[in-house]
């Protein structure tokens, strides 16, 4: 073999790059998402689990477009007959209250950076969420903008 010094070292670099995830992950604690599920009084989500896992963002965009651009209904009914508000803050987050332990778990795990929170607010505490009215939400947003 000619030029073996250069070629073998180049091949080692190449193998190192291709197998990069193996030695990068080695010895590091895995951080698989651990979701905090809603309390027992909310047994049913607006759609089935698999749909929510793969396509909740599409659903949120549909709600947004339907309500804001087509004046669609603000409320929907699940297959189990539960009435819900088609809203991220007042719908989804009335059950999934903890953004850090629900939304962010999978988003951080898979490097997804949704732009929901550019405008929307996460509930600061359960009491605050329950007592919020629309006006307060708007006020709160103004405070943050300042």
């Amino acid at each position: 073999m000619y030029g073996s010094g250069r070629i073998i070292s180049a091949l080692l670099v190449f193998v190192g790059l291709v197998t990069f995830p193996i030695w990068y992950n080695a010895g590091k604690a895995q951080q698989p998402p651990v979701l905090q599920m809603p309390a027992a009084e909310h047994p049913e989500c607006v759609r089935d689990v698999l749909y929510m896992r793969t396509s909740h963002m599409v659903l949120l965009n549909e709600w947004r477009d339907d309500i804001l651009r087509k004046s669609g209904p603000r409320f929907g009914v699940t297959t189990g007959g539960v009435r819900y508000e088609r809203s991220l803050q007042k719908g989804c987050m009335s059950c999934h209250r903890d953004k850090q332990n629900f939304c962010a778990q999978c988003h951080v795990y898979t490097a997804v950076d949704p732009n929901c929170w550019d405008c929307h607010l996460e509930p600061t505490s359960e009491e605050a969420l329950l007592s919020w009215t629309n006006e307060e939400v708007i006020l709160n947003e103004e405070v943050i903008l300042k």
């Binding site: 995830p21 193996i22 795990y109």
Partner: peptide, 17 residues
């Protein structure tokens, strides 16, 4: 045909470990 990315990442990270 959106897929469950978390399940896929658990598989792919599992492959590397």
């Amino acid at each position: 045909f959106r897929v469950d990315v978390v399940a896929i990442k658990e598989l792919s990270v599992g492959l590397t470990t």
